[in-house]
Structure formats: C-alpha cells, structure tokens
C-alpha cells in the first residue's frame, strides 16, 4: 500500500515538473509580462525598471533555474503584480473557493444521489422521466448564462438574495468562512446552486446508470428471491455496489468544483481562486499562474489517491489485488 502511494507521488512530481516547464515556455511565447503590466504611456526608463524588478531581463533558462531553486526551498516566488509571495495570495483565496465547492458539493450530492437512485429503480414512472428531463436541461445550459438568469430572477426581480460578493464571514474553530453567518449563507446560495446544477445533472445520470446496471445482477436477484427486504437490498446491495463508479466521478468533480469555478466566480464576483486565475492570465502574472496550476495538479493527484484508497475500503477485491502485489 505504502509503495503504491509513493509510486503515485513520484509520478505526480514528474507531472508537476513538466507543467512548470510548459507554463514558462508558454508565457514566454505569449509575450512580455512587463508590456501587459505597465501603463502604455510609461517611458522607456520606467519599462526597463519594471523588467529588471520582475527579473525578466535574465534569459529564460536562468529565470527557470531561479524558479526551481526557490521551489526547492518551498518558495513559489512573488506575484509580478502584487509583489507578494504567491503562496500567501493563493491561501487568501482558497477559503472562499473551498466553501463554495463544499456548498455546491453538498447540494449536488444531497439532491442528485437520491434522485438518481429513484430514477434507476423506477425508470418508467413520470417522476423519473421528469428527473431525467431536468438533468438534460442542466447539462445543456451554459453556466454563464444560467448564472445571469439566477441573478436577474432572485437578485433583481424577486430581490430576495444578494447578487454578488462573499458577504460576512465568521471564525469558528479557527476556520473563517461565510458558512457560519446568515449573510454569508445568503451570498453563498446562488453561486453554489449555479455550480451544483451542472454537477447534479451529471451525478443523476451516473447514479441512475449504475443503479440500473447493478439491480439486474445475479446477487440482487438472488437476494430478492431469498426474501431480503427491499430497503436492505437498496442500501446494502445496490448502494454498496454503485459506490465504485460514483466515487470515481465524485473525486474528479470535487477537484473541478475547487479548481475550475472560474465562470461562477466571475459572474458572482466570488473572491476565489478562479477569479484570481483569470485576472492573472490577463496580465501574464506567471508566478501566480504556475502556482495555481501546480496546486490544481496536486489537488487532483491527492483526490485520486484518496479515491483509490477508498476503493480498497468499499471494494475488497481491490484490496486483495493490491495485497497480492498487482498494484493496479
């Protein structure tokens, strides 16, 4: 198990390394960050001073070596524009992104797994068809537009919810979050729903498909023939066995919620990582872009690892396979 985890981590480091090279070369090919940053009216002397201050006067390979050197000491460097450690900047945005992801995740899972289960168990009922219709609409609507519609509907027309920003935060057990205040929750609701809608559609479909596959299998039929109560069949035999595909999807989706909330964060002025990424790309703030992408890669690697470990918990076959040496 440990060997397996280490091997995964080794692969992850390789991926991260390739990523940093890519970003360096990519940004270098796009243009000079100094030109994106400074005022077009600035004098040549000001431009040169800026290029020197940002370390862009050195050749690219040396800039990269400097970066790697810093990385060895856990230093991702300073943002070109804010001139503060990027780790600090990312950390200041992470909280907002995490709480949004958490709220969206709870909404999505809490609603879509029961709905998917129902639609899978009774596929021919009216309600099931309605659920499936809803999920089709959910995947088809562009998130950007959907966000605007939510804002117009609940923020302007009905005027019951605020239309943007994070709202008040409170600190409980050392965690500062808007989840702990009413104002914060009100601000959180629309963006969380906006993000959850798309995930719900996907999760409903995955759950339903898995349920429909599992419920026709021999062991379910056998259990039913044996006279096991339907409730127990669903919770024990069906739910237990659809966990594998569901876990895989959930793992990736949590990552997506944290890392790629760009659209929702933009529409709702949510001060999370996604908005930071967009504004950093606009001014070619290379250190922030790199740190963000490394964080994202790391996030997905860790999530996949957790999912793999959870596999071994929910599925004895996987555990046995690993123990017998075939780490697949």
């Amino acid at each position: 198990m440990l060997v397996y985890a280490f091997r995964r981590m080794g692969q992850a480091l390789l991926v991260l390394f390739a990523l940093t090279v890519l970003v360096f070369v990519g940004v270098w090919m796009i243009g000079n960050p100094a030109d994106a940053l400074i005022s077009p009216d600035a004098s040549m002397a000001e431009r040169e001073a800026a290029i020197r201050a940002l370390g862009l006067d050195k050749p690219l390979w040396q800039q990269y070596l400097d970066f790697v050197g810093g990385l060895m000491q856990g230093d991702f460097g300073n943002s070109f524009i804010y001139r503060e450690p990027v780790t600090q900047i990312l950390a200041s945005r992470l909280g907002a992104s995490l709480e949004l992801a958490f709220a969206a995740f709870v909404l999505a899972v809490g609603i879509s797994v029961p709905l998917g289960l129902y639609a899978g168990l009774y596929p021919d009922t009216r309600l099931s068809q309605a659920i499936m219709g809803f999920s089709l609409i959910g995947v088809s609507i562009p998130q950007f537009w959907q966000g605007m519609v939510l804002i117009i509907l609940f923020g302007i027309w009905l005027a019951v919810l605020p239309v943007g920003g994070r709202g008040d935060t409170a600190t409980v057990f050392g965690i500062t979050s808007s989840l702990f205040t009413l104002d914060g929750l009100m601000h959180l609701l629309l963006p969380a729903v906006n993000m959850a809608l798309l995930k719900m559609s996907l999760l409903i479909r995955v759950t339903r498909a898995a349920v429909m596959e599992v419920k026709g299998l021999d062991y379910v039929r056998f259990a039913r023939a044996k006279g096991v109560r339907p409730y127990r069949i669903v919770t024990k035999h069906i739910l237990g066995n659809i966990m594998l595909p569901l876990l895989t999807v959930l793992g990736i989706e949590i990552g997506n919620l944290v890392a790629y909330a760009v659209i929702t964060e933009t529409v709702f002025s949510w001060p999370g990582l996604g908005r930071l990424l967009i504004s950093s790309i606009q001014v070619l703030d290379r250190p922030v872009i790199i740190a963000y992408l490394c964080f994202t890669a790391l996030l997905f690697i860790v999530l996949n690892l957790i999912v793999d470990i959870l596999y071994t918990v929910v599925d004895p076959r996987v555990r046995d396979a690993i123990h017998s040496g075939g780490a697949k």
Partner: peptide
C-alpha cells in the same frame, strides 16, 4: 519591487 513606477513624473 515596483512593477511600474511614477519615475517619469519626477525626471
């Protein structure tokens, strides 16, 4: 560490 100073105003 300024990414763009006001230098030209005091030159």
């Amino acid at each position: 560490d300024s990414p763009g100073t006001f230098m030209s105003f005091i030159e």
